[in-house]
Design a protein around this nucleic acid. Structure first.
Length: 286
DNA sequence: AAGACGAAAGTGGTTGA
DNA sequence: TCAACAACTTTCGTCTT
């Protein structure tokens, strides 16, 4: 784990201010280029820092870890520079790709207001993708967007593929294509979209009252129990439940309004809610 | 006039022979 | 590899409030 630092310091190597401390080693590390910046802390372990298995193997080498017996700052600095040079020359394109991707990822995550945990998950996914050589032939933008979307799903955060794609300046279609590819290749476990979370999000966007929200949840629960939700997009089901709840509570919301916030069409809401009311006879009593 | 309705055609992906 | 298929969208004419 690492923590953000409100350190005004910039990276010596690339000038970025996105620095984090590695809580295990206490090193100050640049998230942009991977440079290790703090030399005052003595690290008892190996002094290199691997991003993934492949690098770990590549970087493993013989040599004593830095100790207090070596004070010479200049010597230390030169060693560090040599180390970095070796890194960049041996793995240049990968490193540059990663640098670019991570900065793009931070930018997109920022516009989506994603918590740090999700961005870190996405970064892990991206590194895995690099490791498996899945990037070639795809744009950084689209793979980054896919990784972020996958991370959101894994962290149970509601961010639509469309929103992620928009933030990454690519089309929904392209994001979907790359997401499917990543999902297939990485065999990552991705939970289905949590419909309760969807209700929470839509309800707050639509400013719907608490009682109506509760009613929508009840309807969703019943529909789920009666297997009316299988094979249907969660957005459509959720939107229909909210629409029905509004109707029952005389809280006027148009199909268009709800459809827009759920990023689906009115037609889909109509189809879902027709199916639901046909099979949820209990609604009549409410 | 706005909202709801539903038919019909189109889209992009999955499945299965 | 291709056609059938399911879910969803787009579009548009019509009905309802």
């Amino acid at each position: 784990m690492s923590a953000v630092l409100d350190n005004p310091r910039a990276c010596d190597e690339c000038g970025s201010t996105a620095l984090v401390t590695d809580s295990e080693t206490g090193e100050l590390v640049c998230t942009q280029c991977g440079a290790v910046l703090v030399e005052t802390i003595i690290d008892q372990g190996p002094e290199w820092r691997a991003f993934d298995l492949e690098q770990q193997q590549k970087l493993t080498r013989v040599g004593a870890p830095l100790t207090l017996t070596i004070h010479d700052k200049e010597q230390e600095r030169q060693y560090r520079l040599r180390k970095w040079q070796r890194r960049t020359s041996s793995n240049d394109s990968t490193q540059r790709n990663l640098t670019h991707a991570l900065s793009e990822m931070n930018r997109i995550a920022n516009t989506l207001n994603l918590p740090k945990s999700a961005t870190e998950t996405a970064a892990m996914i991206y590194r895995r993708a690099i490791q498996r050589r899945l990037i070639r032939g795809r744009t950084i933008q689209s793979v980054v967007a896919s990784a972020l979307y996958m991370a959101c799903r894994q962290c149970n955060l509601i961010r639509s593929l469309e929103d992620v794609a928009k933030a990454a300046n690519i089309t929904r279609k392209e994001a979907a294509r790359n997401y499917r590819f990543l999902h297939k290749e990485l065999k990552q476990d991705v939970p289905p979209v949590d419909r309760d979370n969807l209700i929470t999000k839509f309800v707050s966007k639509l400013r719907i009252s608490g009682p109506t929200e509760q009613l929508a949840r009840q309807i969703l629960k019943k529909a789920s129990e009666r297997k009316l939700t299988i094979g249907r997009a969660p957005e459509g089901i959720t939107a229909a439940c909210i629409y029905i709840a509004c109707k029952l509570n005389k809280e006027e919301r148009t199909q268009g309004e709800i459809a827009k916030t759920a990023q689906i069409t009115e037609v889909t809401i109509r189809n879902r809610y027709k199916e639901l009311i046909k099979n949820l006879d209990f609604i009549v009593e409410l």
